[in-house]
């Protein structure tokens, strides 16, 4: 009975990892511009536009209101359109990234908002364009906080993959439900949870370490 457990877990973990990486990349591609835009269109910022700001804020809030499992169902047609199927890890990455993007946008917004206004003003006084301010001031100055935010997003997406697993995405979540829950295989349940715990710890540890590394120079006293 136990011989099949290891390869099964390995495949499951591989699928989970694949979903997490793919969805995170897609969520960053969607969420980063969204988060940046929300910040720079806010009142008094470099591309002030109250109307656009309100629209973006509303879009983010609405997308974030959907329970993830509902989001998956709603986005089934989109998954079929983009990937050709509604089953499997790649298809699951569609709702995963769309659900994670607005969440990530809010995290990015919070990080970028922490950048001192004086720094932005100094750059404006030197003739910087809004794009230069984003690339050379906001993002580098908020980098360690952005890394921590991304860590949080990766962990949240990992949690989402388990939900996606329940309705055909594969991965460890799917194993836990199909074997652990439906067939009373406590060993499978235990092993999947253990792997997820270790994985999340690892992600958090790496994120903390990277953020500290970025921060070290900036706050080292000499």
């Amino acid at each position: 009975m136990n011989e099949d457990l290891i390869p099964m877990l390995l495949t499951g973990f591989g699928e989970t990892l694949y979903m997490v990486v793919l969805s995170t990349v897609a969520a960053v591609v969607l969420g980063l511009p969204l988060g940046v835009l929300v910040v720079i269109t806010s009142t008094g910022h470099v591309l002030e536009s109250p109307r656009l700001n309100r629209v973006l804020g509303t879009v983010i809030n609405i997308t974030r209101s959907f329970p993830f499992i509902i989001m998956i169902v709603l986005l089934l047609p989109l998954s079929r359109f983009l990937v050709g199927t509604t089953l499997g890890a790649t298809a699951a990455a569609v709702p995963l990234s769309i659900a994670a993007a607005p969440f990530l946008a809010r995290i990015i917004e919070n990080s970028l908002k922490e950048v001192d206004r004086g720094k932005v003003e100094a750059a404006l006084a030197m003739g910087a364009t809004p794009l230069q301010i984003v690339r050379k001031v906001l993002i580098p100055e908020a980098l360690s906080s952005l890394v921590l935010g991304l860590t949080l997003a990766v962990i949240t997406i990992t949690g989402f993959t388990a939900t996606a697993g329940a309705i055909g995405a594969g991965g460890l979540g799917s194993l836990a439900i199909r074997y652990g829950y439906m067939r009373y295989r406590e060993d499978v349940m235990f092993a999947t949870v253990l792997i997820l715990v270790i994985f999340v710890q690892g992600v958090q540890w790496s994120g903390d370490r990277l953020a500290r590394r970025i921060n070290r120079n900036q706050h080292r006293l000499g």
Binding site: G118, K119, E121, V137, E141, Q218
Partner: peptide, 22 residues
């Protein structure tokens, strides 16, 4: 044009406003 003009107007601030990441 204002951006170009600003490149020739230096400014210093009470709280320095340096970039901490550089």
């Amino acid at each position: 044009e204002l951006r170009d003009a600003r490149k020739k107007i230096g400014m210093i601030f009470q709280h320095f406003n340096l970039l901490d990441s550089r």
